[in-house]
């Protein structure tokens, strides 16, 4: 906006303002009505939906799947979409930071005097696209509840290695299924494809010690599982080490 456009805007605005109504009581009445609606919604939600409290926080089990408040789902979904580890940092903080900077500086790069949405097609279309993308990511985040059981064919090598190996395999499978790993990993047809890599053939990629080391000292955002009781921990490692 140049000086002439600024002055023109201020002139038009002062006319519109002079033709308006006083804030009290006209705008105050509308704001008050809206406040009553907001409070009614909050109170109704509290009465109908209540406030649940899960079981106590426990570093030694992850029977609860890491799931943020619903309005952060879209961020978590960005993680799922962007896979390569080298890009994870970019996806998690990079993309949101970039978006916040763009949002912050909006008045400084969009300097046209036009205000009608239908006459600023770039801004309006971008806005609608961002809203649609966030709605889609939130929806797919909400739909991606991880399963708590794993259904895969037991590898032939495990079956032929005798019953000890088989019970070890089954025990580990149960712990992994209950520990929320499937929120971020895929094993066979189970779980979500991201943000973590597919674990279906993890043992072919990573030796036993490597798997154990990852569980103790993982790359973010995977939580560390070093506080699990040793029995559970070895069960997980045994199971994963058989996934060739």
């Amino acid at each position: 906006m140049n000086q002439r456009e600024k002055e023109e805007y201020l002139r038009d605005y002062s006319i519109l303002k002079a033709q308006g109504k006083p804030f009290f009581p006209y705008a105050v009445a509308k704001d008050g009505a809206m406040a009553v609606v907001v409070m009614a919604i909050i109170i109704t939600m509290s009465l109908v939906l209540g406030a649940e409290l899960g079981s106590k926080a426990n570093p030694t089990t992850t029977t609860y799947v890491p799931r943020p408040e619903w309005y952060f789902f879209f961020l978590f979904e960005v993680l799922r979409v962007v896979k390569p580890p080298s890009l994870v940092g970019l996806a998690t903080i990079g993309v949101p930071t970039l978006c916040m900077v763009l949002l912050f500086l909006l008045p400084f790069y969009d300097r046209s005097p036009e205000r009608r949405p239908e006459r600023r097609p770039i801004a309006t279309i971008t806005g609608i696209a961002v809203i649609a993308a966030m709605a889609f990511l939130t929806y797919s985040g909400a739909a991606a509840g991880p399963p708590t059981t794993i259904e895969t064919a037991t590898p032939a090598a495990v079956k032929s290695a005798g019953s000890a190996s088989l019970t070890e395999y089954e025990a580990g499978k149960k712990v992994v299924a209950q520990s929320g790993c499937l929120a971020c990993h895929k094993i066979g047809e189970n779980g979500n494809a991201g943000p973590g890599p597919d674990l279906t053939h993890i043992a072919a990629r990573l030796p036993r010690q490597g798997i154990a080391r990852t569980l103790v000292n993982p790359t973010a955002p995977m939580p560390s599982f070093k506080n699990l009781p040793p029995k559970k921990f070895t069960a997980i490692v045994n199971f994963l080490a058989q996934l060739k």
Binding site: G54, S55, K56, A57, T61, T62, Y64, P66, R67, P223
Partner: peptide
């Protein structure tokens, strides 16, 4: 500080 809060 329940399970969900902690792990999330």
């Amino acid at each position: 500080f329940d399970q969900r809060a902690y792990w999330a």
